[in-house]
Simulated scan of single mutants.
Amino acid sequence: MIGRGTAKGRRAAALVGLLGAPTLFLGIFFLGPLAIMFTYSWLEPGLYGGVVWNFYHLNYGRIFGWANTRYEQFDPAYLQIFARSVWLALCTVGLSLAICYPAAFWISRQPERRKNFFIFLITLPFFVSLIVRLFAWVLLLRPTGFINQALMALGIIDQPLEMIFTGFAVVVGMVYIFIPFMFLPLYASVEKLDMAMVEASFDLGAGRWQTFRRVILPMTLPGIVGGSIIVFIPSLGNFIVPSLLGGAKVLMIGNLIEQQFLSARNWPFGAALSMVVMATILVSLLLYVRQMTREERVTATPLNRQEA
């Protein structure tokens, strides 16, 4: 009994030693700032910046519609900006998935040496500054840029297309940036795909669409959902890409939060907007975890029945 108690104590001490530092780090540098932001979102904004320590629910009222006072008014533009941000983030996820899904299958079927080379090419943009890469897209998409000049030289268009400072340019920039984040989870799932099950599906008379829907898609779904979440979260709060490629015409929620903190100096309202973004991300993560848990239960149920 004494030996067992000593062993349990050692395991507990080792566990505390392993998890203590990361837990302390997250508590100080993640949960701490998050708690400050949440507190500030319920405080009154100061006249010249900062906060006044009075309970003030109208920060959320300006967003959701119950602010109707002399100084605070509900403006549907905030919800429109948030809806636009969600839409552009979803477009980024969809286009990234459409590009990376077939690419992951193609690369996974290559010889080992070529496979590693292609993966290196996908991660290569990480070695270049983000600002430099985005300014390259500015040069490509502007009216006198390479794309417009090439299309006019080929006779496809008569005058330059308005591509820069549009939602299209913002989506293109975010897809370009977040493609590696979508590709790597997808590639991990595709690599684990059991081709014997695919061949068995064809042998049993299933067509390509049935095989994809009933075999390939369920087996690669964890990578699809994981990559979509990883891309959606930074896309929703991104403000660098809209600033450079969207200009003043495409305002996203990240730009609005930046303006409230730096230009308007309305920290409580900026904190309230940040909490809305955090809540949206948290709901997305909870839905992802719930879906994965449900799929694990469905997968484990037949196995449990066979064991019984």
Rank of each mutant, 00 (worst) to 15 (best):
R214G: 08
P234C: 14
A136V: 13
Y176W: 14
M197P: 00
F178D: 07
W209H: 06
V215W: 00
V190P: 12
V215S: 03
M163G: 08
P143E: 13
I177T: 15
M219Y: 09
G223W: 03
G155S: 06
L193Q: 01
M163E: 11
L204E: 14
Y187I: 01
L236C: 04
S235T: 09
T166H: 02
G237H: 10
T211F: 03
I230H: 03
G226K: 07
F181Y: 15
I233M: 11
V190K: 06
I240K: 06
P180T: 04
L141K: 05
V198K: 04
I216E: 07
A200Y: 03
G227W: 01
W209Y: 09
Q149F: 11
A200V: 04
K192T: 07
S189M: 01
I177S: 10
M174D: 10
D158E: 14
A196V: 05
D194S: 08
P143F: 13
I233H: 09
I156E: 11
T144M: 11
I224M: 04
I216C: 00
G155H: 01
P218Y: 03
I177E: 12
M174I: 09
G167R: 07
S228K: 02
D194Y: 04
I229M: 14
W209I: 12
P234Q: 13
L221P: 00
A136Y: 10
E191K: 09
N148L: 01
P234Y: 10
F212Y: 14
L161M: 15
P185I: 12
M182F: 10
W137V: 07
M197L: 14
V170E: 05
L139T: 14
A150P: 04
I156A: 12
R214I: 11
I179Q: 13
V190R: 05
I179M: 15
T211H: 04
L151F: 05
S228Q: 04
V190D: 08
P185G: 13
I224F: 05
F202K: 03
I179L: 15
L141F: 09
N148K: 03
I147L: 13
V175C: 12
I233Q: 05
P218K: 03
L186D: 01
V170F: 04
I157C: 08
G227Y: 02
P180D: 06
L151R: 05
S201A: 15
G227S: 04
F146Y: 14
P234H: 14
N238P: 01
L217S: 07
A153Y: 12
I164E: 13
A188C: 06
I157M: 11
K192A: 12
P218C: 09
L193V: 01
P160Q: 13
A188S: 11
M219E: 15
P185H: 07
I224K: 00
I230K: 03
R213C: 13
M195D: 10
F165D: 14
G155R: 06
P143W: 12
T211C: 08
M195Q: 13
E191I: 11
Q149L: 13
M182K: 03
F232M: 12
I147M: 02
T220M: 03
I230R: 05
F212R: 06
M174P: 01
M182Y: 07
T166V: 04
L236K: 04
I177A: 10
L204M: 15
V171P: 06
R142A: 09
D158V: 08
S201C: 09
M163Y: 10
V190G: 05
V170M: 02
L161S: 12
F183D: 08
I177V: 15
D203P: 06
T166A: 07
A200N: 06
